[in-house]
Simulated scan of single mutants.
Amino acid sequence: MTKPSVQSLTKPSVQLYSIRDAVDENIDRAIERLAEIGFASVEPYAFHLRIDDYKRAFAAAGVTAPSGHAATIDAPDASVIFDAAAELEISLVIDPFIPTERWQSVSSVQALADRVNALAEQAAERGLQFGYHNHQWEFVNRINGRPAYEIFLDLLTPNVALEVDTFWATVGSADAPALLRQLGDRVQALHIKDGKISEDIATILPSSEDALVVPAALKAAFENQTPAGQGDVDVIGVLRAAPHALRVVEFDAYSGDVFAGIAESFAWLKQNDAEVTA
């Protein structure tokens, strides 16, 4: 598999969805604040809808975007997204969300895999990679006794990239480090996310229409996410299991100042990732 051109592991990326309110208010200042923390790269979301804004803000802050999120699987014309990625010099395009209802039968998972395989081939023709980002329901939903995610992986072609959200994989009862060791170089990026994990949030799922429409227990789980190393995820084990993968800090939500939380994760990674990969 050809790897995307990612930054040094000592310079992790950050998913801009974490600061979505700040991005909506002032995208230039929001990204500048991340650069001030020390980030040299970011992971934008829905980047095809704000190409000029992202391009301007990236240039002003001196950051790059090796990876980006866009709802590509259900897009009527994926070439629009891939064209935008090329313009923004994004080499790894990730679809962030397919709802739980489509992970409950072999036929539905097969259809998803077929679509992802085709998109990966289309991306490769442009010198890009395409892949998928998990939540917990891909693991919680079991088909003939197997996690739907496992079936999905079996159906993917080798050129499909994976971005593993290690928090949500752990919530879904996966052993995240073991999963990463099993997948090896197929995993091109990690979402470094931490927090308190309890059984109830594994099976309480968001609306099938919008990942932001969530029950109270899941909303609390979002807000109780913590900087890396302060929650229940084996983040050290995750780092050791995928030393090659781009680290992308993310918070779905945060009860405090999200920029402060991101800065704590950045500092923790700077210290602990250097020790793990030394």
Rank of each mutant, 00 (worst) to 15 (best):
L119W: 03
S79C: 00
E121A: 15
V187T: 11
A70I: 08
L190I: 10
P96Y: 08
D114I: 08
L34P: 00
R126S: 08
I197K: 07
L155R: 10
W268Y: 06
I90N: 04
T72A: 15
T203N: 09
L49D: 12
H133T: 10
G256D: 04
K55P: 00
A260E: 15
E43Y: 03
R181W: 06
I73D: 05
A274L: 12
G145F: 08
I197L: 13
D210I: 07
I94E: 02
K11M: 13
R33A: 13
N134A: 08
W103D: 02
G256F: 03
E223H: 11
E275A: 15
L156N: 02
P227G: 06
F47K: 03
D21K: 15
L49Y: 11
H69G: 10
A267V: 09
V248L: 04
N159S: 14
G184K: 06
P227Q: 03
V248C: 12
F97G: 08
G237W: 07
E138G: 03
D185C: 05
F251C: 00
I197Q: 10
N272E: 13
W268Q: 07
K11L: 14
S173I: 00
K11P: 00
V276R: 11
A75M: 09
A22S: 14
D234A: 04
G68F: 06
I31D: 01
Q230R: 12
A61V: 10
L218E: 05
G195M: 00
E125T: 15
A120M: 09
A57N: 01
R181V: 12
T226A: 12
F222V: 04
A263W: 01
Y45L: 13
Y17G: 01
T166F: 10
D24K: 15
A118S: 14
L34M: 07
T170C: 09
L112G: 02
L218F: 06
Y132S: 01
P243C: 09
I90R: 02
T64N: 03
L16E: 02
R29D: 15
V140L: 04
F58T: 05
H48L: 06
P243E: 11
W103L: 08
A78E: 11
A113E: 04
W137A: 07
